[in-house]
Amino acid sequence: MSKLLDLQFLAGHAHYLLFIVLMMTGLFIVVDKTNLVKKIVGLNIFQVSVFMFYVSIGKVTGGTAPIFPMDDKYHVDKEALVGIAYSNPLPHVLILTAIVVGIATTSLGLALIVRIRESFNTIDEEDILHIEQEMTRDDNRKYGNAMGGLA
C-alpha cells in the first residue's frame, strides 16, 4: 500500500486507477438502477472501460499506431521501418472482436427489454418483481391446495 504514495509509481498507474473508477461507475449503474435500459447503458460503460484498460496494456511510450509505411508499389517499405517503435497490435485485434460481440449482446438485451415491456407493461425491475410476486400469490390462492402446498 505504501506504493500508492510514491509519485513515480502513481504517474505510471494513474491510467489504471481512472479506468477502474470508470468501470465501477458502470457497475454501480448496473447494480443500483432499476430501469433496464439504464442497466444496459451501465453495462456498456463497464465494457468500454474494460476495452480501454486492455488496449492501454499494449501502449508503448514513444510508439505509434501499428501501420507500416508503404513504398510507391504499395508494398510495405521495409527500409523505412527501421527505428520506428510500434504499439502492440494484438490487444487492438482482440478488442475489435470484443466491440462487435458487445454490440451483439447489447442488441439482444434490448430486444429482451422490448419483450419484457410487452408482457409486464413496465421496464422497471422492482415493478416486475412486484408483479411476479402478485402472480405467485394469485396462483397460490387458486391452486395452492390442489397442488398440496405453496408454489
Partner: peptide, 20 residues
C-alpha cells in the same frame, strides 16, 4: 480489489512489459 490487482502491473507504456 481491482486497484490492489493493478499494483503489480508494469507502469503504463513500459516498453519492457511482458505484453510487449
Amino acid at each position: 480489489a481491482l486497484v490492489y490487482g493493478t499494483l503489480d502491473m508494469p507502469a503504463f507504456g513500459d516498453p519492457n512489459a511482458p505484453a510487449q
